[in-house]
Amino acid sequence: MTRHQERPYGSDTTAPLVEPNSLLPAGPTLTLTSHRGPRHAVVAVNGPIDYHTAPQLLGHLATEDMRNVPLVVLDLTRVDFCDSSALGAFVDLHRRRTGAGNGFALAGLHPEVERTLELTRLATVLSLHTSVKDALHAH
């Protein structure tokens, strides 16, 4: 029976560590790159979308500009992991955007991510595309 040494929090974790005598936490980890077209925005996400990073994604897409653009495509080509918080974020975005008469699509899903969507029966609710090009073409 091997018991690994318990590791103290180090710089490789992203927990909001706090300076002594202050209450200041640290920051997030997704890389988000937006490309704006005349009637659409493609947001390329790089990194896992999870409980920790989903708020950052939601925050990025909550700006007035992003809310009002007619079509948002999330390029998930570089997202190798999505958990239920990510799914929650997708559903939330989908509902808000379609409710406001705008479009929302996911493109370039890894098989693992697609499986998670299928397990939760969301594959039929969300608009999924193999590539950004397909997504733009379809909408």
Partner: peptide
């Protein structure tokens, strides 16, 4: 039997690290 143990504070950063 092989065991790995980690302790975390209840913060969102625990999630990616545990993964």
């Amino acid at each position: 039997i092989t065991t790995v143990v980690r302790d975390y504070a209840p913060v969102s950063g625990a999630v990616p690290d545990a993964r």
